[in-house]
Design a protein around this nucleic acid. Sequence first.
DNA 1: CGCGACTTTGAGCTATCTCAACAGCAGTGG
DNA 2: CCACTGCTGTTGAGATAGCTCAAAGTCGCG
Lengths: 263, 263
Amino acid sequence: MPVDLGIAEKQRSTPFYRDEKGRAYSKTEGPNACEKCFLRELNGCSALQENELADYMHLSQSYTYSRRSNLFNQGEAALNCYIVTKGVARLYRLLSDGRRQIISFALPGDFLEFHQQEWFTASADAVTNVNICRFSKQELFQFIADKPHILNKFYSLVYEGLSQSHEQIMMLGCRSAEERVASFLLNLRERFKKIGYISITLPLVMSRQDIADFLGLTIETVSRTFTKLVKDRRIIIVPDGVRILDLPNLKNIAKGIKENVFY
Amino acid sequence: MPVDLGIAEKQRSTPFYRDEKGRAYSKTEGPNACEKCFLRELNGCSALQENELADYMHLSQSYTYSRRSNLFNQGEAALNCYIVTKGVARLYRLLSDGRRQIISFALPGDFLEFHQQEWFTASADAVTNVNICRFSKQELFQFIADKPHILNKFYSLVYEGLSQSHEQIMMLGCRSAEERVASFLLNLRERFKKIGYISITLPLVMSRQDIADFLGLTIETVSRTFTKLVKDRRIIIVPDGVRILDLPNLKNIAKGIKENVFY
DNA sequence: CGCGACTTTGAGCTATCTCAACAGCAGTGG
DNA sequence: CCACTGCTGTTGAGATAGCTCAAAGTCGCG
């Protein structure tokens, strides 16, 4: 089963439930088929030993959220944690006056809220149709309590997230609009590669507004910057994404190097 | 032993060594006196059980770095990890053209580089004279490999760091200069409180340039913003720090609320 | 007292924002 | 099949928060 970003689907057809907050979702009955999951090699689940898999499969349940729907909200009791298995989700925080900062885009294999804190510190919703594995936090952490090899793997993943956040801090703190957009495209490209999604077109499943709120820019600045990159022949814009024409130069822009420098 | 931010000391008197990179430091011979350490209640060490303490004490060694000296650099092999026990350090990343982004200020009790990655992803140096506990990463992670209660504690601490980083992303992505400075002061105040450092004056041991590089602003903008906060009677500037005059209003500014709002 | 490091203040500049118009496209309904 | 509507993205023109450069002030220290 290949990586699925949920690009094509615009509508959902499966029947859905609503939770106590009115969120629509659909659910796969019975335990998850972890042994067939293409993500097993990639993420925290890879730390599982064969004899642990059967129990683990019963811990999580598969859910589907449709495009634009909400997964959880900042401030709510954090009873569950999530792994994205298909599509893209956005993790964000809001200020009281409506300003939004997207903290990260979660791709297949990414963990959300794998902590033991009582409340969600951010909100998340589905950018495309999204499939997730949902765990009861309490059950999950009980399961791994005597399995340090798994906890260790989780630890590494959180640290990786921390490292990504530091990169993001660097980006927002000292990079220009053009550098931000270039970094964003390259980072996305790397992450797709890592999960085995390789294609000439770099799909941009999120809106310009999402990109703007991620990069700390306005939608107009993002648009103008894309236009500039197109004019300078670094990229071309295609339906649902971009194609990178001049990778080395884009990398230099992302690094903050103005002219062509080869090394 | 109370929290010591190393404010008063401008000079160091103890003899020092130099490591292979030419870094000056001094070292306490023999095992650390963890049983007397005031941080034991606060940080990761609090997860240690009585019978584990003796072994743990032999894992780390106490080092002193003088003001402005370097602890480690981005890109070097990450053989050690650190806990600040006195003073303040800055963790930062550099761009090739010299732009610097300070990722965090590490106060007593804060962990640095508690990961198992091969290389340092950031640099750190001493803002004041700094005491640290230094661990061999390999030895430390070997020690905790069969002690999930400690690993679990570390996990929580890393997640807390992640949460702080997300706050920082929010700050850099969508807050104005005044909001950033207000948030910075309040956040520092909270963190001092947490480690038991309570005083009328909020000490600012870092330079304006450090604050600017942390907040993604220039030194001039930081200075002007302080001046504005003084004029508006939110704070007063005193030697080595500020005093907060109007806490509720400062909190509103930090939240992005313009006028007096009580709730 | 004088030097150097740091901070504040001033004045003009610019990258990015704001506001507004318009273009493209999908869905809808007659 | 085509007007109509709503949503998203692009482009333009003017406004502005924060930046840059320059000068002056402050403070600790020899």
